[in-house]
Design a protein around this nucleic acid. Structure first.
Lengths: 390, 390
DNA sequence: TCCCAAATCTGAAACGTTACAGGTACGCTA
DNA sequence: TAGCGTACCTGTAACGTTTCAGATTTGGGA
């Protein structure tokens, strides 16, 4: 046994953790005069700084070798002890794990990655446009919440809408720069989903596809949202109802909205008014102006469904510019992903979409997919939850 | 010279790029019957799959070895040729670079990282709360815009306000998981700045410090913003002015706001009304309610400066709840980082803070800092740019 | 007493890259 | 023709990890 102070830079609180003096000495093939001396000697012995000695230069981090030296074991044993391999004795495992903890060992990601190909990275791929109201932020925070309890890091790769959405995906796959991918703006027939499935890369999508491929996803039930929205408008006696639709029909949730909307309209024998020329991707200025036009016209709706909090603000501006009052001349139901809407027009009926929760779900899904869980078990929906305020 | 089709999986468009048959043969020590045969033989020759042969299994990526084999050169030469080292002949460089391009070679990040310690990662560290209006998103997009033209990846590490802001920083430094850091919520005396400077880790902050350490930063000139805001209110004849201040005085920009505000108030001989109990970190609900109280009281301001677009919406709600009208009873100036504000209350005077631009500046700054540029050359301010709409 | 199996532990090799310390070939000078 | 410098290229080792194929020890049975 060696005294606790015999380590120079790295110290363990419990010196009995260290390898027996004889073992260490055998490894270092040095004379018998305490670990401190031993280390110094070892250092003088070699020409280059002895990295296999438990003294680390400024800024150097302990490695398996460091632990191996301290414990008087081989690196292999240490490696396995740290991951609880069955062929290592319990006593050794405890000893090794304690030393590792006490000297603050952390596996070198580059070493692991080079050897195993595992990157410990989850990549969030999203388009850089449509995210006025903190959608991206909350997604990032949700994902991070989950990843922070794991060895995974989160990298974010935005792409602009003018570019091919496949490009960042292909890059990740070709360079092997992530173990899993989370992506949004899912399309009914999504080339990325096909590509990733073919290549066997774990991923989860925010939104569903309709291509007969089972894959992990999380989605907000936009059909239910649209249905319930129309229902609330009907309940308020509204009869001529319009919807600011999801982005280009290419994106799946546009269809879900349509479906829910049409069903409710039909059930209520109400009439649908079309909003031509604008959708949720349109610039807020244009939405406002078009809205003013529409609401000043003869065939204006008396109830409106909007699927984005940001767009809703522009809608309100347009409605009010036309001289109408929300809650009197027209009612507005909107989805929101941050709690801004109700603070400025309490009459708006809001459904909250918890994007942070979506982030958590998606992160959990990719991780479990990476762990080999069947895709079908990693599909979840979250339901609109009405908060009519005041 | 070899025929173009002599490569099995990897092909180059210009077969003359390949090494001479003799060279390749020498390396492979095989008989003379074309590259295709040669590769097959090489494959049969060894027990394990011959990774040093220009045929790659499904999902395998070309490495330096692959190129070396194809070009009939050593890996070292290839490595250097690819980075334009002076000791490599121009002809060789061209040849190697062309092959690399044609077979789609990309350096293995884990290999580089393990060998050189360079991660090619920039880490964005931010707090997960205060970002209602797309602040985080735009920052991320701005940074990505710059990084996408470089080999750098962006990782995002949020931390919650309850936690120690040092923790993620320490993690990054201890595990060496990034080459540079971008962080926000800078404090006058910032422990992170001190720590990173001491450890010599490149970083850039969104916001300034006041601790005598020169470091890269980008900041919005909040002093000018507050000053100009008050000035515009004065110009509208407002005399009793209040400001919804920046988060806790711990954060530097709070001071800048104060300074600009006080100076303008003094110059205009106006009077400042204090907003007690709320700042920009307060929940929107609470801001709204408090605002209603204040604006219903006897000592209410007739001009208000607000430093966040999200908070401004809550302010407006409070003001209107008190039965007052923006632009008549009271004027409001606000900073905004997304163009939402003016669409719903055109009377609000807005100053745009271009966070995306800040992201670009910060990314450029860290990159140049990593490249060794002096910190003093990497400090920039952006100035408020008034847009009074309609 | 000897041998065998189980329980532990081990060194060497490999992942892809770069740095180090040469090596070879060529042309020029003496 | 020898000697030498230059231009160009090369093999080996190392970064930290895991995997492979043993090696060593221990205890028990014959």
């Amino acid at each position: 046994m060696l005294a606790g102070d015999s380590c120079i830079v790295l110290t363990v609180k419990d010196p009995y953790l260290l390898g027996s003096f004889e073992t260490i000495q055998k490894r270092a093939t040095l004379s018998k005069d305490g670990l401190s001396q031993l280390i110094m000697k070892a250092k003088e012995g070699n020409q280059r700084p002895p990295r296999d000695v438990a003294e680390l230069a400024e800024g150097e981090r302990p490695t398996l070798k460091t632990i191996a030296f301290m414990a008087g074991l081989g690196v292999t044993t240490v490696s396995r002890a740290l991951k609880d391999a069955p062929e290592i004795g319990q006593a050794t495992k405890n000893r090794v794990q304690l030393i590792a903890k006490q000297i603050g060992y952390r596996p070198n990601r580059a070493g692991v990655r080079l050897r195993t190909g595992k990157t410990n990275v989850i990549s969030l791929v999203l388009n850089a446009q449509s995210s006025i109201m903190g959608l991206t932020s909350n997604m990032v925070y949700g994902i991070s919440e989950i990843l922070s309890q794991t060895p995974y890091h989160l990298t974010v790769t935005p792409y602009s809408l003018e570019n091919d959405p496949m490009q960042p995906i292909r890059y990740i796959v070709e360079t092997g720069s992530a173990d899993g991918i989370i992506m949004s703006r899912t399309e009914p027939d999504d080339a990325r989903v096909r590509y990733l499935t073919e290549h066997g890369i774990p991923f989860a999508t925010h939104g569903r596809t309709e291509m007969g491929i089972e894959h992990p996803f999380h989605d907000f039930d936009n059909e239910a949202f649209a249905y319930l929205s129309v229902k609330s408008l009907l309940a308020k006696g509204r009869r001529k109802i319009a919807m600011l639709a999801g982005p280009t029909p290419a994106v799946t949730y546009h269809r879900h909205l349509d479906r829910g909307f049409s069903r409710a309209i039909e059930e209520g024998a109400a009439s649908a008014v079309a909003f031509s020329g604008i959708d949720v991707d349109t610039s807020l200025g244009r939405i406002r102006d078009r809205m003013e036009e529409i609401m000043s016209g003869s065939n204006r709706p008396d109830g409106i469904v909007c699927c984005s909090g940001g767009a809703a603000i522009a809608l309100v501006a347009g409605i009010e510019a036309a001289g109408l009052k929300i809650g009197e001349d027209v009612d507005l139901v909107s989805k929101q992903s941050t709690d801004v809407l109700q603070w400025f027009r309490p009459q708006i009926i809001v459904f909250n979409e918890d994007v942070r929760h979506a982030g958590r779900e998606l992160a959990r899904a990719v991780l479990r997919r990476i762990a080999g869980v069947d895709a079908r078990e990693l599909q979840s929906l979250s339901y609109p939850d009405e908060h009519e305020l005041r």
